[in-house]
Design a protein around this nucleic acid. Sequence first.
DNA 1: TGTAATAGTTAGACTACTCTAACAAATATG
DNA 2: CATATTTGTTAGAGTAGTCTAACTATTACA
Lengths: 160, 160
Amino acid sequence: MVEEQTASMEDYLEAILLLTRKSGAARVTSISDFLGVTKPSVSYALKKLSKRGLVVHEGYGDVSLTSAGRKLAEKVLEKHQLLVVLLVDILGVGEETAKRDACRMEHSLSDETKSKLEGLAEFILASPGANKRLEKLRYYQENLDRYHEDLERKTRSVES
Amino acid sequence: MVEEQTASMEDYLEAILLLTRKSGAARVTSISDFLGVTKPSVSYALKKLSKRGLVVHEGYGDVSLTSAGRKLAEKVLEKHQLLVVLLVDILGVGEETAKRDACRMEHSLSDETKSKLEGLAEFILASPGANKRLEKLRYYQENLDRYHEDLERKTRSVES
DNA sequence: TGTAATAGTTAGACTACTCTAACAAATATG
DNA sequence: CATATTTGTTAGAGTAGTCTAACTATTACA
């Protein structure tokens, strides 16, 4: 069994997976650019992840994932992608917010909830009757937005 | 505008709100028991939250929230409760997992996503046609579970 | 009302990151 | 092939939290 990683370490694993997929290999610099952290921070993280057997580095070379590391990284990435689908395609959350939320929530989503959420997403997006259901949800959401806007307007006029 | 708080500080605010509602007042000891942290940790947190104008303490007495603190605490608690409804009543996630997930995800849920999620929950639980919809989802989830169990069994038999 | 029990604080260490500054290794180019 | 540029590491400090140990303040009650 692989121990739980911190959100930060999961971010590094996920970044390495994505960079490897995109360009064949990950480097300290590309990870640093991708995550928006300094190179010393990447160095520090890689040392930790190496000790835990999740990453192979041997200084100044390419960074790659061990199979344990890859398994973990894939799990995180799957959660991330599921959340994006849920937020954007089902809930209609704006791209920017959805991205920010997914990047944070991916670390707190249990495997159990993930699989249940997959079921919900499938039910709403791909099961028999899904189209009609999604259409109705969209309609409902839109009216709800209008309703909340009204409410806020009223609140403001009371406050002022 | 109130600045963003860390997950930890949000936990303290939420605990103070809940304890105040339950027993009229929060104390260092009750917060410490509730959150499962030591009293020095509570002391440390209260000092920070006081400086930020979110909590009123004046040593050795009751702990209470300022209106800014209460507003923030209520926001977090609402997110928590919404997540529990979503996880337990809609997705059918087990109580324990749902609680753990809600406690962590409440800190990464944006206001925008929260309101969209409220819409979804309402749509599934309380809109016209909701009963039938929830029933179908439940049925779908159950078969999905069975399907995934089958899949896992097959995977195992291949590996061994 | 004096003392024991409870409640809270302070001091100091530890963890898990983050960063900047300074240096070393590798690579690329004139 | 020597040197400039890029890449990566090490050292050291800072932050935000956690804890234990030792202390002080408050309260309870014999």
